[in-house]
Design a protein around this nucleic acid. Structure first.
Lengths: 305, 305
DNA sequence: CATCTGATG
DNA sequence: CATCAGATG
């Protein structure tokens, strides 16, 4: 106990070292780290053509945090022609300045509810037309779909509603699925369609690590799986599964809980889904599982079109 | 652009270093850091007696965060007979295990609203009686007052309601002030009282850095100042100001905004207020402005009783 | 600027 | 186990 001792002669203690402005962001690949990842592909179309268009997609799970974790470095290193983001959780007025990247046109659609959903799209080439939503009031205020039209195809970048804990929003999802299906079907009657993004469903048992225990959980209910099946039956193809029909352990999402990612206890929720007539153009559909910065990893499509 | 190059021979990149469980806590004095602070006092009572009782008080501004910032080390190093905490923001069931400290009885009072207010008290000696609240329904559900009775005095440890941004809760405060005043007055008729804690007012212009610009802000309105004046007029003494009537720059709170603490743009909001009859027992009333871990610093009373 | 909670995933 | 917003200070 500090009893009534004489005052010491010590000089005043200086204030502690100033804290960094931002709490040390979780470590992530920086630009130079990407150099150690293999981003090459030797795949071609079935008739041997090299890709000439690259599209990437990433559920960033909060754009502001993702930017602090050097997410933009991925964009620069991958250097896709088109880049789609889901779950930006960020209204346009709050976008950090780093999101402006030379050489890209950018398009943003945020939800009415602050910090919820939200999508974005980068495109090197200016699209012929950009449209927002599905044309359905219920979903168009939530920031879920950006469609860009190019000369030879439509790209629909989507963030599909999560069915929620306890499946509380499964009814909403059951309304969404046919709306999206009809939307892309309609587009497909005009030009080929590439649908990409977080589809929030693992279609088949080999699309997630624990199919048996997840049949009652959001992302692997029969209802959601049937929705995906119905979509594919309308003349669309899951590009990854088309190329790698037997591949296991190929996931794009791992919950942050319980070290799921390091144990690869994951789900394949992010897709490039193509109009059947684009299959001859498909070169590769790749999961960038070595890229960090979100609970999802990015995916990349290589195509000749 | 990563064109159709051959796959590299690099092996898979290992997952990034696991993030620490907790984001690096803001740096704070650890136990050993306290060794560089001067915690001694050579003050005695006016008739020369050394102190035999030490009481400390700290608005910790969130107990869970404060524990991570090594707040408990302060308690161990200061080693007071009684330690009072305000703004614990923590229900008893969520207390981190570290809060149990050998040699102390502990008492907690949390508010009904999760994460709001809440007070705690450590005592080496078991009190004769412990009571919670002021006996006024409106305030007793908020976690603001613990009273401990000892042989020779009452200690009232309080967290006074903040008048709020735009003074939205000034009316509530105006009800509180007389309630607290009457409460301690009543106790004082039985035994001497020590009232301590975050009084949420700077009484006089020399109790804050910017009196001129804060007369309409919570903590320095005329109403709040009058409340403190009325309390003192009932026979109580602001121990710090009694001992150091001319001292300037002596503050116990600095907003986290704009580096206020390093510029000492602060407020004296935390007090030991004594029944007048305890003044002959008073040795020292100290502001531990070198101790970090909250936007308030701790204060310590040395008394011979 | 920092603490909490609560919603959401 | 993360994100973000919103309340509170």
């Amino acid at each position: 106990k500090t009893k009534n001792s004489k005052p010491k002669e010590k000089k005043a203690v200086p204030p502690p070292a100033k804290k960094p402005k931002v709490d040390k962001p979780p470590l992530n690949k920086t630009q130079s780290d990407y150099e150690s990842l293999d981003f090459s592909s030797n795949r071609t179309t079935s008739d041997g053509k090299l890709w000439n268009l690259k599209i990437s997609s990433w559920n960033v799970g909060g754009l502001k945090a993702w930017v602090k974790k050097n997410g933009i470095d991925y964009l620069k290193y991958e250097d896709p022609d088109i880049f789609c983001l889901q779950e930006t959780k960020c209204s346009e007025s709050k976008l950090p300045p780093e999101v402006k990247v030379d050489g890209y046109h950018t398009y943003w659609l945020s939800g009415e509810k602050e910090g919820y959903a939200g999508v974005g799209l980068y495109s090197k080439k200016e699209p012929i037309k950009v449209t927002y939503g599905l044309g359905k009031k219920e979903f168009d205020t939530e920031g879920r779909v950006i469609t860009v039209e190019y000369e030879k195809f439509y790209l629909v970048a989507a963030y599909v509603p999560n069915a929620g804990r306890g499946l509380v929003t499964l009814p909403k999802r059951m309304k969404w699925d046919p709306d999206l299906r009809n939307y892309v079907k309609e587009l497909d009657s005009k030009k080929p369609v590439i649908l990409c993004g977080d589809m929030n469903v693992s279609h088949q048992p080999n699309d997630l690590a624990n199919p048996k225990t997840n049949t009652k959980n959001a992302g692997f209910t029969q209802e959601e799986r049937d929705g995906m099946t119905a979509l594919l039956e309308e003349g669309f193809v899951d590009s990854f599964r088309h190329l790698y029909p037997e591949k296991t352990g190929a996931y794009t999402f791992w919950t942050y809980m319980g070290n799921a990612r390091s144990r690869n206890t994951g789900w394949r929720l992010d897709y490039f889904i193509l109009s059947q007539k684009l299959i001859p153009n498909l070169c590769d559909s790749i999961i960038r599982s070595g890229v960090y910065g979100s609970d999802h990893c990015p995916i990349t499509l290589l195509i000749n079109i």
